[in-house]
């Protein structure tokens, strides 16, 4: 397929996944506000921090309160990672590959675009935030499902899948990182009900609470970290995201697994192998935040390599 088209399909999927994850991230706090209404201040600064756009936010907004943060993350067209901006770019990319994606899939993307661009959307999001962010997630799933059911599972589909899972790997590390920035009222609270509540909110916003319970039962920070980083089956666990990316990558190139013929295969293969043999204790010893930071960097590098391998063919 055309390199330009492959590039657009890949980014279209990355942006939709990114928009979905912003909704999930916001979901952590919405969840907490319901679970522990009487436990002090809601903390919105971490939401901005983990997206890496805190400097921009501080420059343009008075302070990290609920409303400005929600606006920044959702409707601020100037924030390149807001839901609105991601959905707009996803649709721009989709528009340039309409002949590649199915009409049904295009229509779902277009409907998500119309949903977040509707003049009444900001008022709706403010009045019933749960419904609004839930709807963004639901529509993102609808796009993904429509894609799987209506697009041939050939090259374009694999580029899309690669984009979706690579972006999700990155985003899952960020949502996990939210917990690092969420302050507890006092040190004594670590390992106490409040801490548990925060961890459950993280699990729930990643749609992992039920799946986690089936494997581990009790809420325990160590187990949650292990599950969200290393689980081989859960579709939002970082390890699974990266192996799914790998499956599509190798299907596209025809290179057998555990071998490499280009930089993307090598960088990704190495990263997966590292995770294969990393224990949760290694993560805790290094420090969760530090580990996640490093992991994000390596995921980024894989992204750069994919870009070079497939999309930037010299003229």
């Amino acid at each position: 397929m055309l390199s330009r088209v492959a590039n657009s399909v890949y980014w279209m999927s990355r942006y939709i996944e990114r928009a979905e994850n912003v909704a999930r991230m916001v979901g952590v706090n919405l969840q907490l506000a319901i679970d522990m209404p009487r436990h002090g201040e809601e903390q919105w600064a971490p939401m901005v921090k983990v997206t890496g756009n805190d400097a921009d936010f501080e420059a343009r907004y008075p302070g990290p309160d609920r409303d400005p943060v929600l606006w920044f993350l959702t409707f601020d067209a100037q924030n390149p990672d807001s839901i609105l901006a991601c959905v707009t770019r996803a649709r721009e990319n989709a528009r340039t590959v309409r002949e590649i994606i199915s009409s049904e899939m295009w229509e779902e993307i277009n409907r998500l675009y119309l949903y977040v661009h509707a003049p009444e959307a900001p008022a709706e999001a403010a009045a019933s935030p749960f419904t609004f962010y839930q709807e963004v997630k639901r529509r993102s799933h609808l796009i993904e499902g429509t894609k799987n059911e209506t697009m041939p599972h050939s090259d374009a589909w694999h580029f899309s899948r690669m984009g979706r899972f690579l972006e999700r790997a990155d985003q899952s590390t960020r949502i996990l990182d939210v917990k690092y920035f969420l302050l507890l009222p006092s040190v004594d609270e670590v390992g106490r009900p409040l801490d548990d509540l925060q961890w459950s909110a993280v699990l729930r916003s990643i749609s992992a609470l039920e799946a986690y319970r089936k494997v581990y039962g009790q809420i325990l920070a160590r187990n949650i970290i292990e599950y969200l980083l290393f689980d081989r089956d859960f579709p939002r666990a970082v390890h699974r995201c990266l192996t799914a990316t790998q499956e599509s990558l190798h299907t596209l190139t025809g290179t057998p697994m555990r071998r490499f013929r280009n930089e993307s295969e090598r960088a990704l293969g190495r990263l997966v192998a590292d995770l294969d043999y990393t224990r949760v204790d290694d993560v805790l010893n290094e420090g969760l935040h530090e580990f996640l930071d490093r992991l994000q960097q390596r995921i980024n590098e894989v992204g750069d390599d994919v870009q070079k391998t497939f999309f930037s063919i010299p003229p």
């Binding site: 397929m1 055309l2 390199s3 528009r95 063919i313």
Partner: peptide
């Protein structure tokens, strides 16, 4: 343009996707 390409099942190309090489018109693919 994209509608017709999709309905016919052919590639939709922009100038940047095309190059002349070996005396023939070629498109850059993955």
């Amino acid at each position: 343009h994209s509608f017709l390409a999709r309905q016919m099942g052919v590639e939709l190309v922009e100038g940047q996707d095309l190059v002349v090489s070996g005396g023939r018109l070629q498109m850059r693919t993955t």
